Simulated scan of single mutants.
Amino acid sequence: MKIVIIGASGTIGKAVNTELAQRHEIIEVGSSSGAHQADMSDIAQVRALFQRIGKVDAVVVTAGKLHFGPLAEFTPEQFQVGLNSKLMGQVNVALVAQEYLNDGGSITLTSGIVADQPIRYGTAASMTNSAVEGFVRGAAVELARGLRINVVSPTVLTESLDAYGAFFHGFEPAPASRVALAYSRSVEGVQTGQVYKVW
């Protein structure tokens, strides 16, 4: 298969690449690195990206920014960070990708454990991740030509504990290599509308 990984330079993206590149052709996309660059919050850039790449068999998104902070101090602009990037960025990719996927192709997006297990300072993350999962469930029943869409919901990564561990006391981390298996199951499996929880 020919698979696009958006967010390929991130910790999860690299692990997904390592897993899938054993069996498939990978096209790496980043915001400022990789074979191709695009800001997924700008649908015009997403359209230009797929026009350059052409037809593919699967699209995986492991990118998306969020703001963490105390709810009492949150501003609408800080909520908008996640809404523009992790939510609408991934929605933009899905909207465009359906036009470029071969019949039976798949889209795999990323949410996160805080959609189900809220943490202090993570209100925006809980909101955004829940919205991504809602989009996937809704889109799954409408995609045509046998196209599939799923979402992976990882816990905090073992590799990210130095940066995010303080937010996730009491949570069991997972290595990126284990998280990558859920993306493999989405891409290489048959299910649609699923939330693959790695926690």
Results as ranks from 00 to 15, higher is better:
Lys2Arg: 04
Ile3Leu: 02
Ile3Val: 12
Lys14Ala: 12
Asn17Ala: 07
His24Asp: 13
Glu25Gln: 13
Ile26Asn: 13
Ile26Lys: 15
Ser33Ala: 04
Ser33Arg: 07
Ala35Thr: 06
Ser41Asp: 07
Asp42Tyr: 05
Ala44Ile: 09
Gln45Ser: 11
Gln45Glu: 06
Val46Trp: 03
Ile53Ser: 08
Asp57Phe: 00
Asp57Tyr: 01
Val60Asp: 04
Thr62Arg: 06
Gly64Thr: 07
Gly64Asp: 05
Gly64Glu: 09
His67Glu: 05
Gly69Met: 13
Pro70Ile: 11
Glu73Asp: 13
Glu77Gly: 01
Gln78Phe: 08
Gln80Ile: 02
Leu83Gln: 12
Asn84Arg: 15
Ser85Phe: 03
Leu87Tyr: 13
Gln90Leu: 02
Val93Pro: 04
Ala94Pro: 09
Tyr100Pro: 01
Asn102Gly: 14
Asp103Gly: 03
Asp103Tyr: 05
Gly104Asp: 15
Ser106Tyr: 00
Ile107Ser: 02
Ile107His: 03
Thr108Val: 11
Gly112Arg: 03
Ile113Asp: 05
Asp116Tyr: 01
Arg120Leu: 15
Arg120Pro: 05
Gly122Pro: 00
Gly122Trp: 00
Ala125Asn: 05
Ala125Trp: 03
Ser126Pro: 09
Met127Asp: 01
Asn129Cys: 15
Asn129Gln: 14
Ala131Val: 06
Val132Pro: 00
Phe135Trp: 05
Val136Trp: 03
Ala140Arg: 06
Leu147Pro: 00
Asn150Gly: 11
Ser153Tyr: 07
Asp162Ser: 08
Gly165Pro: 02
Ala166Val: 00
His169Val: 12
Phe171Gln: 14
Ala174Asp: 06
Ala174Glu: 12
Ala176His: 14
Arg178Pro: 13
Ala182Thr: 09
Ser184Phe: 14
Arg185Ser: 14
Ser186Met: 02
Val198Ser: 07
Val198Cys: 12
